[in-house]
Design a protein around this nucleic acid. Structure first.
Lengths: 203, 203
DNA sequence: TGCAAATCTGCATTGAGTGCAGTTACTGTC
DNA sequence: GACAGTAACTGCACTCAATGCAGATTTGCA
């Protein structure tokens, strides 16, 4: 059992208070219309203290550092014996996408909207994506040492993620209301785009 | 002929002076070690004037807005009759890559390095990339209306660019400072990344 | 209880970016 | 060539994110 110390519990509570205050204010006044001082005041801490919890204003939108990447790494680790790299990746990303909370919840929806509209937030989001890609590529290479060198693995992962991101970009532009429809169209589009990788597998 | 007015010529000269001063200083003291005031002083303008030429500090690293994208769009427009979407993209990206100035010249090399090391610069770069992708996807969809819907086109372009970017990320990690080496590696990376599509084409 | 470490906080500072207002330089016209 | 209109330049004051520092407070643990 964890048996958290008082210090840690307090810190955790403060952290959540900051995130909640920030989300609240961002929705109410917009990202740029909200200052660190506003957030600090709402969370009942000193302005300076904010920066001992989050390194920057954007950071508060990604309160849990890791997220979906662990699911993908797990899928790579527990792959079936006759799976090729593309198969593993495909299933992993599909699953991570299906049951991830990334589309659900207020913070997630807000984050999505801000990524589209605020440059600083988008920059941070893309950087996190790239980091995740590199990590996945590393594990994929480790899982298939003969079939994929490091560069090949990175290219493969990049192609998959790029296809999804590209599709998402257009889909989100159309303000897709229905989640299921969006998901289906995404699958359709990525299947077409990634056809060569899949066909290579079948042969 | 253009027959530029004096005003325009002067403005152009100042613009170039700013870029040159900035590049010089970035190389000498690093990006974060250089302030707008430093750049302005070196370019012999007032600090405030900098912002009437570039909207932000990053912007100075992309002095010509468009760049390589036109080449890609042209390749799409002048495609052969029996080319499929992937063929067109493949040729377009490789050509754009081969004879683009993006790897040559001091500014380009500096930009590459700063994209890797400075978050703000990377953010801006990625945003430009996404914008370019969307534009290319639009044209690709227009060129192949039945084979690709908008989402499919975006996914395909995303997959191509993602593959290249992913491969490049690993290759550039090894801190290749030499321009020729970098260029060779870039070709290498794109070949690896786009291999599956080429193989699919051959069959 | 009392000491050490972690945490919180205010204060001062730097630097990007913006709005405004006054001045200067250029353009086209009579 | 003088003139009026407009574009560009500049300094000033301001806001806000982010960082360093130092002193106060709280917590962990012997």
């Amino acid at each position: 059992m964890a048996e958290l110390t008082l210090r840690d519990r307090k810190r955790r509570r403060t952290r959540r208070a900051i995130v909640e205050a920030a989300v609240e204010l961002f929705e109410e006044r917009g990202y740029d219309g909200t200052t660190i001082a506003d957030i600090a005041e709402a969370a009942e801490i000193g302005s300076r203290t904010f920066f001992s919890y989050f390194a920057s204003k954007e950071e508060v939108l990604w309160p849990e550092s890791d997220g979906r990447i662990v699911a993908v790494l797990e899928a790579i680790a527990t792959r079936a014996a006759d799976d090729g790299p593309a198969d593993v990746l495909l299933r992993a990303l599909r699953e991570a996408n299906r049951d991830s909370d990334d589309m659900v919840g207020r913070t997630a929806a807000l984050r999505m909207r801000l990524i589209r509209t605020v440059p600083a937030v988008r920059g941070r989001g893309l950087q996190l994506q790239l980091d995740a890609q590199r990590e996945i590529a590393r594990h994929l290479h480790a899982a298939f040492p003969e079939e994929l060198d490091e560069v090949g693995a990175a290219a493969l992962v990049g192609a998959f993620v790029g296809a999804i991101t590209g599709a998402l970009q257009v889909l989100l532009e159309e303000a897709g209301d229905d989640l299921d429809t969006t998901r289906r169209r995404m699958t359709e589009a990525t299947d077409t785009a990634l056809g060569p990788w899949m066909r290579a597998r079948e042969s």
